[in-house]
Write a protein that binds this DNA or RNA. Sequence first.
DNA 1: CTTAGGG
DNA 2: CCCTAAG
Length: 572
Amino acid sequence: MHVVADTGQSLECISIERSSSGKLRLECSEGTAEADLGKINAKLQYIEQMLQKVKHEEKLRLSCGDSQFSADKFPGLDGKIQPDAPYKEIPSIASSLNYTHSNRSGSIDQCSRPSSGVMESGSSASAVYSKLKRDFSMFEGEICLDKLSIRELHELFKVTFGRETTVKDKQWLKRRIAMSFTNSCDISATTFIVKDNKIVRKCEKDSSGNGNAVAAISMENMAADGGVNFKDSPAAEGSGIEDNQVVSETRLRNPNTEHELGGEDHQMEQKAMKRMRKPTKRYIEELSENESREHSPRLLSSNKNTGLGYTKPARNASSEVRTFVTRLDMLGGYGVQIPCVSRVRRSRPRKHMASLMKYHPTGMGKAPKLGNKALGEHGLHGSNSDNESPEKVLKLRSMPGKFHQPSASEPVKERCPVIDTIELRQELPKKTDPSSCTSDGNISTVPTAKGGMRRKHHRAWTLVEVMKLVEGVSRCGAGRWSEIKRLSFSSYSYRTSVDLKDKWRNLLKASYAPADDGMNSRKHGAVPIPEHILLRVRELAEMNSQVPPNFSSSKLTTAGAGSVHVDRSGFL
DNA sequence: CTTAGGG
DNA sequence: CCCTAAG
């Protein structure tokens, strides 16, 4: 369904139609606005009813402590709308309520699990259901924001946003609430006015109304891709967290801030509520990523935070429960409305998953076994220590246990930090003890939004590696990096062919540039590359330049294949 | 996917 | 080391 974004001047036409499937569709075309006013009204009404419903839900929940929500609980209006009607905003709100509630009760863990509560349908308590039903029938008539007292509006506001408000402006409250429903900020009171349960075009309507208006509703986001909120509930939920987070944080810090906040909002509102800030690319990516992991969104998101080093969870050590606070930073306090920003679905989550799988914990355990003969022990050792230390580190970092799901993909990133340290530890001795140079498998990679794995830390090339590289080049020739990698770096899973290439490039540079500079004392910590190696490099380089590239092309298939095979057998 | 190059 | 254009 598509809804109209009214920026103030014209809301040409909104047509709402119910498809046979019971889906409600809002379309915006031009010209026939009036004709469909009735339908609009219907829609609006529905929304309002939903509002009411949510409100009741909240009450209900507060009273029975039932955190279960179900889409099935929203049977729609008098049967016209199927249970699976596209009113995804409901679950969204429900989840938001969830958070509100849980925040309030202080036990997030219990209630903030939409995956088990909100998302699951059919598991709802019948009691709730019937209650809701009643509510619905009640809605049938005339529930309208306009009719709510300011107090009710306040309550509604609280329910909707999870915080109190001191704003007394009824209109503002109404718009605010309505806005929350539509998940959009594009609300304008200029074109339509809601009065007595009807949408009336302002210009046509007599000015009898006391200025009450809920305005035209823009549901862009909601409409964006069908059931955004429901489908993306993980993300929405995360946003919900942020939202509440922001709020609660604020509230915690200074109860009075609320007022200011409200005032500020109010101001904004007065300015016709422009549009919400366009999400940064990064943000979008983040969301998409979270979205792409449907299994453990929460976990992943938190992982992500640590992984990218956005935030230091340790800061929140006191409240492990709320690691997601971290998210705030990125939002810079403006997270409140972000939840429903239309999300751009990335095209290749698959790759991401692939990479995740690639570095699957078990895979990590395996990797060393696979490629390492001499290095095998180290690899295994490394992974073992990995298995133990993460726990510690996690706690140190105040990673919430609850977000720590046993899912397969989890340990990977969780482990990253640990791995890093381990690697570093190993890296150091490595330089002196070439034999232990590699314990691969522990790849400190960070998933990037682009879907690739990005090395988080610099991994110094060890002498051994360099030697291997040189050897490889001498054997296969420069340029055949993948081949070299297979032959000489099969056990170094973290050195890609591109890395080899890069390194070789650097070696060449090094071998040529300071040739006269007796000591290759490069930068400070860098391992000085022995002269003989540089010589060899230069040698190879010259040889390479002299020998026509064709030289080895035929070998590629014969000798190359043979050697590959041999190597493989050893490898596997 | 692999290379080559630029950043 | 990352990213990306070219094969």
